[in-house]
Each structure stands twice: as structure tokens, then as C-alpha cells.
Nucleic acid binder design. Structure first.
Lengths: 203, 203, 203, 203
DNA sequence: TATGAATGAGTGTTCATTCAT
DNA sequence: AATGAATGAACACTCATTCAT
């Protein structure tokens, strides 16, 4: 008994929305199509009418995540003028994004396994775009003599990312394990880090 | 043909030793009880006489991992005298441990899962011990006037950890993705970070 | 956007033509309705307006296959005068048809299945027609005193068919299996068989 | 709830017996593990405790089939002395085997697809042994001057097989399709064929 | 009449867990 | 205490068929 009709656009949104929830609740390793259809209230076959396979769904989710991240960054960093402020804002934005969408990072790791079937051309471009974004930030800062010229843009980019990702991954772990954990103000931690970092990077 | 008798202690060690090898060789995602019993040369039922379920085995393994990490740190940091050097050594040790035993870090991530069933008190104690280790390091440094007194020990502990964890997780990820990726010297990056960090922390 | 109107006859032809191509390209095991509609450029529902199910399409295709076979035979055998030559030509034609259109033979095997749903009377009629063709050949030969009178026409018909079908099925099978297989000239084999057969059948 | 215990031997027999029935009733293309477990009354996992995958079950079935065939042949041909009688007996035995176990031939075809996963060393040997059996028969006949010396042993082997296989495949098809089919005495047909064949092969 | 989105029973395979022996 | 055969819920993916539009 075929169900109700819906425009392709709506159905795809419905599937992605369900998939997003599943990713959020279960994480990438426990992400299953069965959970997606349960959440969406549709049949299994329907999913495969819109997406070739599980990886395509995840790729779309990943694409949305990266796009969102990009916009998030532009919005938070754009309003600052001085490079040091921009880098501080970047640290905070990076942290906050990972904080709000923790599973997206796992997703990106998952998508980057060599066996992952990416056909979505958009994804790779966005991923590279994101890297360029940070690197340009640093190079502009060096051009404007606001940042030390001997800093490697790529290395700095990775330091920032690595730290922000690590904060989310690691501190969350601790939070759950240690019941008597004296609450840590993560945001304050990121700001402290950004402070230390920019002190070291400024001219 | 019933297997040899052994004290519970010996049996448990036997199981854990086998599980450790399996984790090392297969990684957390491919870790199965079948592989453990094959390595240990015992029957499946025997495993379940000593451990309630797979998670309990992994939790014990996680405990051993943390203990190992602890020893690793003591060995690498103990030989330094000045707090700044100790912190630099801590950064490097943290990075290297995660680099050498990536499976242990995967394991800890796996144990993070909300549905993971931890009853092992041992794990939590060790985890706290590890935290104390770093915090004492910092407090001693502050007592010896080698580190700035206004730094919060816990925050600093997390900054170091978060960064080192992040390096392993994040940079590895990127490395696989970007074909035109200009090779990054991770160790150099960690050293750069440690430099910046300690500059900001020293008196 | 509803498709163009067309007489049922035209629609059916359109579907069958597409199905024929699919069978040719994909073989019976990979034959799907989805491929048929892709080739025909019509909607799935339309197919089911003209054919009750997949089997009905295949049955009609089977009918066409048999008709084609019939024509193939007439063309190859008609030009011969002596019954012995006609029978030799029949053997070769039978072999060659199966060799050139293996999918049609697969199709007939598929239609054999007890669960196969045949309602098409056409198929059966053609199948009988084909049998009559061979039998008349033999009876004519007997009337012209070119073939032994005590041969049963039906039996001979089946001997010829059984052999030719067997050659295709069996030898192909073996060819793939045995690496050290000394190459067999199938066509020569059929000719040898035809020779032996007609020696035994001639007056 | 784990079921009753049984010796491995018994369980394997149970699975193979069920698989044999499924093959007989459904044919190779419709052969599924689900049907096997339904017939055997066991759980799916149990099957995979005894066989690595579906192909291994089919390989065992195929191995049994070939062994059976071999024994069947030796039994029926061994008692004859003259080569002509041996070949006649071979034709009949070949026919009768395929008649009794029609699905075994489909199975062998299936096993010989290149993607089939054969580890059973026994199978290939038996398959080759079967071929040698026929060829030796012919060569002995030639040595004893009972058969024409210019016949190629391999070709003759294939002619016999091809015919017998074809009889089963083709005539069965017809039987099911033609309701008003005038009953054909297949056995008589095979004997007629054997007669014609040996006339042509004898000195 | 034509459509094509929706369906869901199936397919082979895995593996943590149970429990009779 | 030790065993290991048995279990069955999951898993990703397919495709013939249906039926509201």
C-alpha cells in the first residue's frame, strides 16, 4: 500500500532531517537506515528512491554540515577587523560549531575513509574552501603586519582546528565519565587558549 | 574436553591479554569476542563467566590503557627539572602516546558512547589520577615560581590534552582527504604549540 | 506530464522492444522492470497497465524468440534439397541460434520454472509449430525415401534439439571451469554429431 | 534460547539435506538460506557456524553430486566388457543421473561461474576425474580395436554429455509447456541415440 | 490512460549472548 | 568451572508491484 505523495524536495528534506536526528542521537558508527526510516515514518525502499546508498545520505549530511560551518565562520569572523580578533573569533566559532554539532565531525572523519563513496563534488570543494578560509585569514594578517611573518599558515590552521576539535572530543568524554567532575567552563578554556595563542602569534 | 583450571585472576588476565592483542590488530570497530577466544584459546562461554559482556572487557582494557599512559607520562616527564620543560615533555608525550597507540584512543572514544555500559570503578579512578598528575605538575610549577600563578591548573590540563588529542584525530583525518595536501609535520606542530603555550604560561 | 497517447498495440510493442534490449544486454538474471522503463522512456505504472506482471512480458518475449528461431530455421534449411542436408543444416542452425542468442535460451529455461506464470497461448502455439517443423522435415524425408522409414519423427526431433541445446549449455560450462582445457571446436563437434546422426538415419 | 545439541556431523548433514531439498524444489536461482533454515528448522546463525557462506553449502552439495555421479557411472559401466556396450551404458547412466538429480547440473553451472568462491579442493579433482573416466573408456576401446581410431576422445566425451544433458533440460521444458504433449519415452530416445552413436563409432 | 512515489518482503551475512551439557 | 552449538536481531540494499493523483 503506497503512502501519500510528496514533492521530491519535501521527501528528501524529510529523509535528511531524520538522518540528521539519527546521527545526532546515535553517532556515526551506530547510524543505520532502519533508524532513519523509523524516525521519518517511511518505508525502506523510499529512502533508496532518493539516495543511492547510505553513503550518499551521509555525504549530503556532510555537505550541509560543511556549508553550515562555513557560513557560521563567515558570520562570526567577518565583523572583526584586527587579525588577532579574527583568530580569537575563529577559535570560538570553531569550538561552538563542534559543540553544537558534535556528530558532524565524526561524520567528516567517516566520509574521509578511503572506501567512502563520494560523488558529491560539492563536498570536497567546501572542505578545501574551509581550509583556505583560515589560511587567508593568517596571510592577510601577515600582510597587514598584525601577525608574525614566520608563521606557517597551514600549521597555524591545523593548530587552531586540532585544539578546538580536541576540546569537544576530549572534554565531553571526561564530563560523562567523571561524575564528581568539577565543572569546567569550556568556553572560558577556549578563550584562554585563544589568548595564549594570539599572544604567541602577534607581532 | 574441559579446559585447564586456573584461578579467576589468571583467567581474567588471559582474556584481557588476548583482548588487548585483538584491539591492537583489529581496532575497536572490528573487535569481536570470537577473535578474543581464538587468541586466548578458550571457549566463548568462559569469557562470559568472567565478564558480563563485551563492554566490561573493553572497560578493563581501557583501564589498562590509562595505566599505561600514566606510566608513559611519568617516564617521559620525570627526567625534566624545570616546569616549562616538563610541560613541553607532557605535550609531546601526550601526542606520542596517542600516535603510538591509536587503538587505545579509539577505545576511549568508544567508551564515551552514552549506551556504553561502565561499571568498572577502576577506570574512573585511573582517569582521575591522570588528571591529578597534570594538575600537580602545574601547581608545583607555580609553587616554584616557574609558572604564572593565575593559571587554573584544570584549565591548563585540558588545554594540553585537548590539543594533543585533536592533533591525532584531526590531522590524520585531513591527511587522508586532501590529495594535494602539503605534508604536515605533526611532531613539529606539537612542538610549535608547546612553545607557544609555555611562552604564555611562564613567568 | 502524462506521456503521449498511443494505441495499445504500439505501447505493447514499445515495451517489448525495450524488454528485448534489456534481455540482450543484461541477461535474464539481471532483467528488471526498471531497466525496461528506462529504455522505453515510459512510466512504471504504464507497463503494468499492459502486462499483468514481469512474467507476462517475458512470456511474450519468449514467444518472439521462438518465432525468430522459426524464421531462422526456415532460412537456413529451406535452401537445401536432400533431407540429409536439411537435417545437417538443422543441427547447425539449432546450435548457431543458441550460440548467437544465448539470452533467449536462458529465457526459455527461466520460463520452465514451475512457479512461472504463463497465460500466453501464443508461446505454446509457436513452440508446437517449431516441433512440427522438424517433424515434417523428417516425414518428408521418409516419403522421399531419403530417410529410414522406421525412425520416429518426434524422437528424432528431440534427439537433434537435445544435443544442440546440450552443446551450448554444457560445453560453455566446462570451458569456464577447466583451465587446462584443450580447446574444443564446438562447431566441429556439432558437425561431427550431425555426420554420425545422418549416417544412422539415411537409407 | 539456544536449541538442542547435536554432533557437528549430524548438524551438517541436516543442513545439507535441507539444502538438497531446497535445490530440488526451487532450483539454483531461487536457492536461499532462508528456505534452507525453514526446511531444517534451525536458526540462520547455525548455518553460518557450519558453512562460511552460501557458496560453501552449494560447493558441498556440488561435491556430493559429482561423487555420486562418479559412483553411479562406475557401477553402471563397470559390468560391461565391450566398449560399445560401455558407451551405451554411459549414455544411459548419464541420462538417468541427470533425470534423477536435474538440479545438480544447474548447480555445477552455477559453481563454475568465475565469481564462485570454491575452496573445496575435492570438487575440481572429481570434475576432472569424471572427464578422464569417459576419455579412458574411449581410449581403451580404441586400443582394443573396438572403436574407430580416428575419433577424438574429448570430442566424443562432450558429444555424449551434451546430448544427455540436453535431453533432460530440453525435454523437461517441453513437457511442462505442452499440455497436449504426446508422451515421449525419453529412455527410448536415449537408447536410440546411443544406438546411432555407437554405430557411427564402432569399427 | 499515464504516472512515478511508495512500499515491504526478501537477500546473504555478522556477532554478542545464552544455556544445556 | 568450562564448553561451544544455537540463537536471532541487525545490517545495507533490491525490485516487483500498487495506487492516488
Amino acid at each position: 500500500m503506497p503512502g501519500k505523495r510528496a514533492t521530491p524536495e519535501i521527501r528528501k528534506n524529510q529523509i535528511i532531517a531524520a538522518a540528521d536526528l539519527v546521527l545526532l542521537e546515535a553517532g556515526i558508527d551506530a547510524f543505520t537506515i532502519d533508524q532513519v526510516i523509523a524516525k521519518a515514518g517511511i518505508a525502506k525502499g523510499t529512502v533508496y528512491n532518493y539516495y543511492k546508498n547510505k553513503d550518499q545520505i551521509l555525504a549530503e549530511l556532510g555537505g550541509k554540515a560543511i556549508k553550515l560551518m562555513y557560513e557560521y565562520f563567515e558570520e562570526h569572523i567577518g565583523k572583526h577587523v584586527h587579525s588577532v580578533d579574527k583568530i580569537k573569533a575563529l577559535c570560538l566559532a570553531c569550538y561552538q560549531f563542534n559543540k553544537h554539532y558534535p556528530q558532524y565531525f565524526e561524520l567528516i572523519s567517516y566520509m574521509e575513509r578511503p572506501e567512502f563513496d563520494i560523488n558529491t563534488t560539492g563536498y570536497l570543494k567546501l572542505s578545501q574552501g574551509l581550509q583556505s578560509f583560515t589560511e587567508q585569514l593568517i596571510q592577510e594578517g601577515q600582510a597587514k603586519k598584525e601577525l608574525r611573518p614566520n608563521l606557517d599558515a597551514a600549521t597555524t590552521h591545523y593548530i587552531i582546528w586540532a585544539f578546538c576539535v580536541g576540546v569537544v572530543e576530549f572534554v565531553d568524554t571526561k564530563k560523562r565519565l567523571l561524575a564528581n567532575h568539577h565543572e569546567i567552563d569550556q568556553e572560558q578554556m577556549v578563550k584562554t587558549f585563544a589568548e595564549i595563542l594570539t599572544v604567541g602569534m602577534a607581532v
